[in-house]
Design a protein around this nucleic acid. Structure first.
Lengths: 353, 353
DNA sequence: GTTTGGCACTCTACGGCCCTGAGTGCCAAT
DNA sequence: ATTGGCACTCAGGGCCGTAGAGTGCCAAAC
């Protein structure tokens, strides 16, 4: 999306103030705002006629548009954009709210529970849809690995990573191994590689195998065959995924009340691909990202805004979380909410590890 | 739900034939059906006036109703009920379709993949929402159990059941055990109980513990402490759950087009509780169950019908699958679809085990 | 030259009105 | 018992007029 910044210089102070008042007003009650209303509403002592002139300018510049000749004006995407970039002042959440969020997150035990809670918090507090990408840790530390024989040349690999998470994988091997053989192999891996990064382990192992190729080291062969499968990157990572909460909240907004539009949106929720693409962009960003209306580049989100923020440990982004709602949303409240949630989730994940 | 059967004797053959024609016609194009249409449509050589009389009778008996004075008639829940119970003749699926379904299911490897495929099949072929409860096996055969030490008095239990499924569980124990101690405990359990039902194992173990209480058998103590947690029924079973596909299909039906109604429905999908209650009833039933409109007893389903069937091995029901759609659906096509899917899924699960 | 009041204009939303088409209910004739 | 005829009812669509809200423009005022 070409999102060229709007030079504030184009707009007089007065125009900016009026734009701000209009956007706030429109966000509040969803009706197009007319000059009369605005004249009363803002502190400024101006007649409706004057305001009409200013509004006319703002429309010409693309910040406002009129649904029809004799309605008031509503903000365009550009108008919202200028509002969130320059005009709005976010009000930080009250302490009490933050604390109750913290409590909620503390209640979760597993990583998945944490993600679930965060998502519920986002949707509950915003009355829109909350979304949290499953954290994907780039560096996965091997803590322990075990192999158990199953029947028919299948081996069950159990991999404990990051102190808490357990992954199972069924390997198909070239012959049946005995229990002792498997234990040996596991011991070998645990002895040498416990505490190392999973990808490193794999690379190092392959290197070693190359070196020892000539010597027919049976143990190493065995280890290699299984580790190859057990640690392969495709298998390693859970499929990209996210947890969604409060989708149905979106059915309450009149601007999304069209069943066709909703259908598109919900299909995007179930197919996930598009949304993941969008959220991926935020992985490489810093702080709260805002996509207003068609800025996201996905047609189903044309009438929606997405507020997202990455979370993770200081050095490393683990995922992205955010909110989806109609373009007309209370940005001033939602932005800090997303911000705080990201920080709290980060903290919770770190203390957990 | 009080669903008293309707004695066919109440209705003359002619009335039944007309009712059948009307329901079929209405299912086809969704418009209230008038006497004129029906006169032309059915083979019978009757004038519209005569048909009007019959329709009037049918309305009085509660099988039909008129949306307003001068519209045609539409079936009531009772009308649909009589139709599915007595009038309709299901047409079995074509062989080609069944085969392609089989192929689709064969493509799935894990149990979960199978469930997912079944659900997708149901929704894809019916153009409505497909739903499959996660199979819950009452008798879970222990194949192998292993314990691995984690830090801080936590032990990871790995339980392989039913030849294929692996369950992990983190146990909190009274002291740190050494690796050898844990292996001993696991060996003990595997030696004595591999191949037994999980619940039996637990009961037997408790009995043995009682018997040996006086002898301070350290090994047995150890085993008991862990098995108690690892095999506890609450922990054992995955939470009741189901997989849903094609929810968004429901957004295409004009009779459900009201956003409020849809919202209720989708909330039921995410909270799951109500739907699980309904499907639980089918667990104890045999063959295809049909709930029309408010027969389900859940208000959100008032405008919907649910076609469900249990699946599982011959002796044992593992779960329920089905379809959710508007009351006005092609029962003649959907009933065999659900029936066949249940049979295919059962077969697939059995061949897998 | 910015601001303002005044005025004509435009557009939507809403209610009433009429007409048409579809279908019914009833009655008298077959 | 069945039928044709006829009066009646009702939803939906088009049309009109009105009320309300808001605009754009212009000429006067500050």
């Amino acid at each position: 999306m070409a999102r060229q910044p709007v030079p504030a210089s184009q707009l007089s102070d007065r125009a900016q103030l009026l734009l701000k008042a209009l956007v706030q007003r429109y966000i509040e009650d969803g009706q197009p705002v007319g000059s009369r209303t605005l004249a009363k509403n803002t502190g400024m002592d101006l007649s409706p006629a004057t305001i009409r002139n200013v509004m006319s300018d703002l429309e010409e510049l693309g910040f406002l548009r009129a649904p029809h000749t004799s309605a008031g004006r509503v903000p365009t995407v550009r108008g919202y954009r200028f509002f969130v970039d320059t005009l709005m002042q976010v009000r930080p959440l009250e302490n009490a709210a933050v604390q109750s969020m913290e409590r909620e997150l503390r209640g979760a035990h597993s990583t998945h529970g944490l993600v679930q809670s965060a998502s519920t918090l986002l949707s509950g507090l915003s009355h829109m849809a909350g979304i949290v990408m499953i954290p994907r840790r780039d560096s996965v530390t091997l803590r322990q690995i075990e192999f158990l024989p199953l029947s028919e040349r299948r081996v069950l690999a159990i991999i404990v990573v990051n102190e808490r998470e357990v992954q199972n994988r069924i390997l198909h091997v070239s012959r049946d191994y005995t229990r002792t053989e498997l234990t040996e192999a596991a011991n070998y891996l645990n002895r040498l590689f416990a505490g190392h990064d999973l990808q490193q382990v794999r690379a190092q192992l392959l290197a070693e195998l190359q070196a020892a190729e000539l010597e027919a080291n049976d143990l190493l062969q065995r280890v290699a065959e299984m580790a190859e499968q057990a640690l392969s990157p495709e298998a390693r990572e859970l499929p990209d995924d996210f947890v969604l909460a409060g989708q149905t909240n979106l059915m309450g907004f009149s601007e999304l009340a069209d069943v066709q539009r909703l259908r598109g949106l919900f299909e995007a929720f179930t197919h996930k691909r598009d949304l993941l693409g969008l959220f991926d962009q935020c992985l490489r960003a810093d702080g709260v990202q805002i996509y207003i209306g068609d800025e996201s580049g996905y047609e189903v989100l044309d009438e929606c805004s997405v507020i997202a923020a990455p979370y993770g440990c200081p050095g490393q982004t683990l995922g992205v979380l955010g909110i989806i709602g109609p373009t007309r949303m209370a940005y001033e409240r939602v932005v800090p909410l997303v911000d705080v949630t990201a920080k709290l989730l980060s903290a919770a994940l770190n203390s957990q590890a």
